[in-house]
Amino acid sequence: MPETEPIAVVLTALPVEYDAVRALLESLDEVVLDDGTRLEQGRLSGTGWTVALAELGEGALTTAALTTRIVSELTPECLLFVGVAGGLKDDLRLGDVVVGTKVYAVHGGKQTPEGFLARPESWHGSHRLVQAARSALRDLDGVRAHRKPIACGDVVLADERSAVRDHIRRTYNDAYAIEMEGSGASHAAHLGGRLDALVIRGISDLADAGKGAADAEGSQELAAGQAAKVAVAVLRKHAPRPRSTSGTQEEPRPGSGAGAGAGSGSGSGSGGDTINFQGGTYYGPVVGKITRHN
């Protein structure tokens, strides 16, 4: 694959999530990284994206480590974590999709004699991708979607009266869904620098004692399929960044005071010496020194 092709990485934890996204891609080829991590790369029709799809397994720690590796190897423009989650709010239905405006890591804190003191960590969804989701969801039929925060913890929640559920309700009251991997992916994307990232989760249960029955009736397949539809719709709206004539990604231009861009500039010396910037690109003031050699 040419290095100049824009890549969107889509990560999943479970086979049902992976299969839902895979069904929407074309021309798939397997890619094996140096450490043995396997992905499939394919095309998303009607877009400029090459999509690299991976199934990482469960848990935030594994997700963070493998996401870091994948981002380092593939240098994608954007990253989506797509899968299923438990719903935390009464207005949610099975098959609804939550687009994560924020991801909370819910287990950080300090236990004291006075009780548990939360020490929250959170990561905001990429502004570009959240905006793309807002636009895409206006035209997407058959999906009930919510742009809300998502809670992430290393726990499968199947009891609406549990201490964990009560902790989330009191400390992360605006969270709409709970899952296990979003914080790992979000943190790895944050450490990767200029990488747009977003967590998209379909509601497969209501984080209560009915989870097992819902899963047995196919709720995970329904939720994963709906989340995959939203992920693809977001990528269709979120076009790759423009490429320069040399095939490399162009940096966004700053606003006023950013310099002249490509072209020619001059530095005045006592003899009218010039510095030629033709064919170059620069941002901000340019500082230099002219040295004459006799």
Rank of each mutant, 00 (worst) to 15 (best):
L235E: 03
S27M: 01
R43C: 05
G83I: 09
S244T: 14
L74R: 04
Q249W: 11
N173L: 02
L14K: 09
A23W: 00
H190T: 12
G265S: 11
Q131I: 04
A239N: 04
A136K: 09
H107N: 15
V106C: 13
S246Q: 13
E251K: 11
P6R: 08
I290S: 04
S264L: 10
L137A: 06
V10T: 01
D19K: 13
G115N: 10
A228E: 09
G269S: 15
G265K: 05
I290P: 03
G271D: 12
S264I: 09
L56S: 04
V98E: 06
G100W: 02
L33C: 02
E3R: 14
S183G: 03
S264N: 12
Q111F: 05
V9Q: 00
R93W: 07
A105H: 13
L117Y: 00
I200R: 06
G259N: 05
L198S: 09
S27N: 14
A260I: 14
A8W: 04
T50P: 00
P113A: 06
R43F: 04
A65H: 03
E77W: 06
F277H: 08
L11F: 01
A216P: 10
R69G: 01
L80Q: 04
E5A: 13
G57D: 06
V103S: 01
E77F: 02
P6Y: 07
E121F: 13
A227H: 10
L53M: 04
A163Y: 00
I168E: 05
G261I: 02
A224K: 03
E17K: 07
H167L: 13
H107E: 13
P240I: 04
R43Y: 05
D35V: 02
G142C: 05
G288S: 14
G261A: 06
A258D: 13
G83T: 10
V230Q: 06
A189W: 10
G153I: 04
G48R: 15
S183Q: 08
A118G: 00
E77R: 12
G36K: 12
G212A: 14
V10I: 15
D159Y: 06
L140E: 08
K89G: 02
A151T: 09
F116R: 10
C152W: 07
A223I: 00
G272Q: 08
L92V: 09
E121C: 08
